[in-house]
């Protein structure tokens, strides 16, 4: 069974976070929501593994925390 990584794993975390904010710059809330939705799908596809995705859904819903 593959486990979802819930320990620090992002290279250059501050750079990623700044990048995440920058793609939302100038967007209205509806455009930002749409971008976030696309981002979720892009990342989900990259992960692919159904066990990891199921754990990610639970983690995002703050289940078991």
């Amino acid at each position: 069974m593959t486990d979802l990584i819930l320990t620090p794993n992002i290279d250059n975390a501050d750079d990623f976070y700044a990048g995440l904010l920058s793609v939302h710059e100038g967007l209205d809330p509806a455009q930002s929501d749409a971008l976030n939705a696309r981002l979720v799908l892009v990342l989900a596809n990259h992960i692919g593994n159904s066990e990891v995705l199921a754990q990610a859904l639970d983690a995002a819903a703050l289940k078991g925390r």
Binding site: D33, A34, A37, R38, V40, L41, V42, N45
Partner: peptide
């Protein structure tokens, strides 16, 4: 609706979204 539209918008550009 937001997620559905995101799938359709992505499907225009990337193969991965088409099975969704």
């Amino acid at each position: 609706r937001l997620l559905r539209d995101a799938v359709l918008d992505l499907s225009e550009h990337y193969d991965f979204a088409r099975p969704l």
